[in-house]
C-alpha cells in the first residue's frame, strides 16, 4: 500500500529555490490581512500627509511631489518587515528540522521569503505610485530615470528584506521579531522623507543627513521629480550594498547557529 519511490538524485539548487519561492508566495497570498495592510497603510499615510499635514509643511514646492518618494520607502520598509515574522515563524516551527534533515541547502527557506517579499513589495509600490498619481503626484522622469528609480527601490527592498530576515533569524519568537522590526521603521521619519532636513534642529540634522535612508530618498526624489541629485545616488547604492552584505552574512551566520545549534 505504502509502496516506495526512489529519487534519482537530490533536488538541484535551482529547483530547491524555486520550490521555496513558490511556498513563500503562497504564504503571502494567503495571509490576506498582512497583504492588505502592506498596501493600505502606505496609501493611508500618503493621503494623511498630502491632505492633513501637507498644508502646514513648506517643502518649497507641491508637497505631494515632495512626499511620495518618502512614502514609497516607508511602504517598502513596512512591507519587508513582515519577512522577520515569516522567517521567525519557520524557525520556531518543527518544519525547519524537516528541511534540515533533507539533502538540500536549507537556507533556501529564507531565500524564498526574501524573493516573495520582493515581489509583494514591488506590487505594493506600484499601487502606491498609482494612488499618488491620482492625488496629484506629477513626476517629470524620463523612461531611463523611471528604470533607475525602480532599480534603487528594488535594491532598497532587497536590503531591508535581508535585514529583517536576519532579525527574524535571531529573534526568539515571531512576536519579538515583529517588535525589533518595528524599531527600524522609525528611520524614515528621521530622514528627509517627510520634511526637508534643514528644518530640523542642527544635532538632528547630523543624524538625518547621514543615515542611509536620506540618500535613498533623495535619489528617488531626484530621479522622479528632478531635484538635484548631487552624490546621493552613490551614497544610496553604497549604503544599500553595505547593509545588504552585512545582513546577508549575519543571516547565514545566525541560520547556522540557530538552526544548527552547533
Amino acid at each position: 500500500m505504502i509502496a516506495s519511490t526512489k529519487p534519482a538524485k537530490p533536488a538541484s539548487m535551482l529547483t530547491t529555490n524555486l520550490v521555496f519561492i513558490g511556498r513563500s508566495l503562497r504564504h503571502s497570498l494567503r495571509n490576506t490581512e498582512a497583504l492588505m495592510m502592506a498596501i493600505m497603510l502606505p496609501v493611508m499615510l500618503m493621503l494623511l500627509f498630502t491632505y492633513v499635514f501637507g498644508g502646514a509643511i513648506d517643502s518649497g514646492g507641491d508637497y505631494v511631489n515632495y512626499v511620495v518618494p518618502g512614502i514609497i520607502l516607508l511602504c517598502a520598509g513596512f512591507g519587508s518587515s513582515s519577512t522577520a515574522v515569516d522567517v521567525s515563524n519557520d524557525m520556531t516551527n518543527g518544519i525547519i528540522d524537516r528541511f534540515r534533515t533533507m539533502p538540500i541547502k536549507s537556507l533556501s527557506v529564507v531565500t524564498g521569503h526574501v524573493a516573495a517579499s520582493l515581489a509583494r513589495n514591488l506590487f505594493a509600490t506600484a499601487v502606491v505610485i498609482g494612488v499618488a498619481l491620482l492625488v496629484g503626484f506629477r513626476p517629470n522622469a524620463s523612461f531611463i530615470e523611471w528604470v533607475l528609480a525602480i532599480g534603487v527601490i528594488t535594491l532598497f527592498i532587497l536590503t531591508f528584506t535581508w535585514l529583517f530576515a536576519a532579525i527574524g533569524l535571531v529573534a526568539g519568537s515571531p512576536a519579538a521579531a515583529s517588535g525589533y522590526g518595528f524599531a527600524l521603521l522609525f528611520l524614515p521619519y528621521l530622514s528627509s522623507a517627510f520634511v526637508p532636513t534643514d528644518t530640523m534642529p542642527s544635532w538632528l540634522q547630523g543624524v538625518a543627513n547621514h543615515q542611509p535612508i536620506t540618500p535613498v530618498i533623495e535619489t528617488i526624489r531626484g530621479l522622479l521629480t528632478g531635484t538635484p541629485l548631487d552624490n546621493s545616488a552613490w551614497w544610496a547604492v553604497g549604503w544599500c550594498l553595505f547593509i545588504l552584505t552585512l545582513a546577508f552574512v549575519w543571516s547565514i551566520f545566525s541560520f547556522r547557529k540557530k538552526a544548527g545549534r552547533r
Binding site: P10, A11, T15, V19, R26, H27, R30, N31, R98
Partner: peptide, 18 residues
C-alpha cells in the same frame, strides 16, 4: 506547513526530494 494544504505539503517535499 500549516498554511498549505496536505496536497501542497506533499508535492513540495516531493520536489525538494528530487
Amino acid at each position: 506547513d500549516e498554511v498549505l494544504s496536505a496536497e501542497e505539503n506533499l508535492r513540495m517535499i516531493g520536489r525538494l526530494s528530487g
